Computed example of a mutant assay.
Amino acid sequence: MTSKLNSTVVLVTGASSGIGRATALRLAEEGATVALVARRKDRVEELAEFVAAQGGRAMAVAADVTDADSAAAAVQEVVDSLGRLDIVVNAAGSMLNGDSERARLDEWDQMIDVNVKGVMYVVKAAVPHLLEAAKSADRQVADVINISSVAGRVATAGVAIYNASKFGVTAATEAWRQEFGGRNLRFSVIEPGAVDTELFSHQQGHAQEAESQRFEGVEKLHPEDIADAIAYIATSPRRRAVNEIVIRPTDQDF
């Protein structure tokens, strides 16, 4: 284990799989204590055990970030247990794309709840602790890193509500960056293209088939590619704020 993030506490949402899981492992390698937040308790407990077996430090927190009280309780549990909070990575996400005429409203609600409200609830609860850490940490800075998408930059037919949710994440992150940067709390957004995660499997029937055709011939990014970008942001010295990173597969031209 290295020590670029030694003595820091990182909260990662969506830590049970994909980008969240890869990020937790990557930041643990940098010396951080990682709080693994997800609905699937068994998965984050298993991951916490794996981090510990590799010589790192981790705790598992079962929480539903789409519920404001649950999100706030998760943040408070981390602070109470670990004494501080230095970095938040909002990696929980939902993608249920497809024909808007056939789409179900509950699927649209789910994307807004996870992708927008989940970020909002965690940020709201975490900011006071992050500002305190920015004052007291050796790093002299704290971080929020939000995972958006290239869908938060370019709208596409059949992707309307996912577009809306990710445009919202990108916009909110920039507004928060302006609001809190002067207090040594950095806000960064990462906008990946296609990443090989469970996200694509969330879609059903015709929507999944359409996505498969859309990305045919594209070698998707690995979750570790995004985790590397997150590590670059989190380990940057106080003077360097990385506002936005766009990462596409080499083969993805949209």
Rank of each mutant, 00 (worst) to 15 (best):
K4C: 13
S7Q: 15
S7H: 13
S7T: 08
T8C: 10
V9S: 00
L11H: 05
T13S: 14
S16W: 11
R21H: 12
A22Q: 02
A28V: 07
A32M: 04
A32W: 03
A35F: 01
A35K: 09
A35D: 02
L36V: 01
V37P: 03
V37W: 05
R40Q: 04
D42T: 07
V44K: 02
L47N: 07
E49F: 01
G56I: 01
A60L: 00
A62V: 05
A62H: 05
D64Y: 01
D67A: 00
D67S: 01
A68E: 03
A68V: 06
D69W: 00
A72E: 00
E77L: 10
L85A: 12
D86T: 06
V88C: 02
V89I: 08
N97E: 13
G98Q: 06
L105T: 10
W108Y: 12
Q110C: 07
N115P: 07
M120A: 13
V123I: 11
A125G: 09
A125L: 11
A126P: 05
A126N: 10
S136Q: 14
S136D: 14
R139N: 04
N146Q: 11
S148D: 09
S148V: 07
V150Q: 14
V150F: 09
A151L: 10
A151F: 13
G152K: 09
V154P: 01
A160N: 09
I161M: 10
Y162I: 03
Y162W: 01
Y162M: 06
G168E: 09
V169A: 05
V169I: 12
T170C: 00
A175V: 10
W176E: 01
Q178H: 02
G181L: 04
R186S: 04
I190F: 00
P192W: 04
P192C: 00
G193Q: 03
A194S: 02
V195F: 02
E198Y: 03
E198A: 10
L199H: 03
F200L: 12
F200E: 08
Q203W: 03
G205H: 09
A207K: 05
Q208S: 13
R214M: 15
E216M: 15
G217H: 10
H222M: 14
H222V: 14
E224G: 13
D225R: 13
D225L: 14
D228K: 15
I230N: 14
I230W: 15
Y232I: 15
Y232G: 15
I233T: 12
A234M: 09
S236E: 10
P237Q: 15
E244H: 15
E244C: 11
T250K: 14
T250I: 14
D251K: 11
